[in-house]
Write a protein that binds this DNA or RNA. Sequence first.
DNA 1: TGTTGACTTAGAGTGTACTCTAAGCGCTAT
DNA 2: ATAGCGCTTAGAGTACACTCTAAGTCAACA
Lengths: 136, 136
Amino acid sequence: MSLTNQSIGRVAEQFNVSPYTLRYYEKIGLLPPVSKDSGGRRVYSQRDIERLHFIKRAQRMHFSLKEIGELISLDKAQLVEKPQVQELVIEKLNDIEESLKDLKLLQNELTAMLSACLSSNEDDQCPIIEGIKETD
Amino acid sequence: MSLTNQSIGRVAEQFNVSPYTLRYYEKIGLLPPVSKDSGGRRVYSQRDIERLHFIKRAQRMHFSLKEIGELISLDKAQLVEKPQVQELVIEKLNDIEESLKDLKLLQNELTAMLSACLSSNEDDQCPIIEGIKETD
DNA sequence: TGTTGACTTAGAGTGTACTCTAAGCGCTAT
DNA sequence: ATAGCGCTTAGAGTACACTCTAAGTCAACA
């Protein structure tokens, strides 16, 4: 169970980022200004922690920090903005589709080159380099 | 058939990059110093063009400019360095494998969220944002 | 002949996402 | 008490891959 009111160091550890990164997210407005204790130190609320979860999950989904910011403000605007969220996701799905096609092709090519290289005579030229030279 | 001895502008056009980029590749040593005509302008030889093809193909294979530089020097060293080339390619294949797994998962998640959003009532909260909030 | 337009250079600027530095403060452990 | 650690700030630095600026040269075309 996650404790609330944690220091920047603890939160950083929990999310596997550096305190620098947390301050940076705040600086660019991805996190709202985090409240401070009497000594001026950041104290992360449960809400802040949830926001961070959101950021990190969206980041794993290949959204840029800028896009994540957009998602957050669309979330705040709620109901009205569903079409915009959908658009963002559709774009992302198209990117993903393209990347998948791309990577699969590439995987085949590189695998072929690698096995050619592994089974080549010791004193032949490297079929991988030659492969990159010739691949269209 | 590709003409030899082309100006920077023509070459840039042919490779869909800017002249800036070509000078940049030269500056960082990815292209050897390109020869100049009497007026001091770059004239790209067939060798330069081939090198550029190599760079662009390797780039499409997700090699960074730094890695491409390594591949080129391994190519120059030829026979001896095959294992290093293989290592680079194996690393790249691992990266690709991971990206593929990642992207497929992501594709499923986003697709599910999107159809939930499309079939949701107009006045419900956006299931996509909610989905990102809750997805582990 | 004059004016485009493509080229030259060195060096600065861009965007993304951090990452670090310097100077300083305040709690805790020895 | 004093050393050390984690925190604070503003602002600078990093890596990648370009991208542009300013000031100037040169060849071709009207």
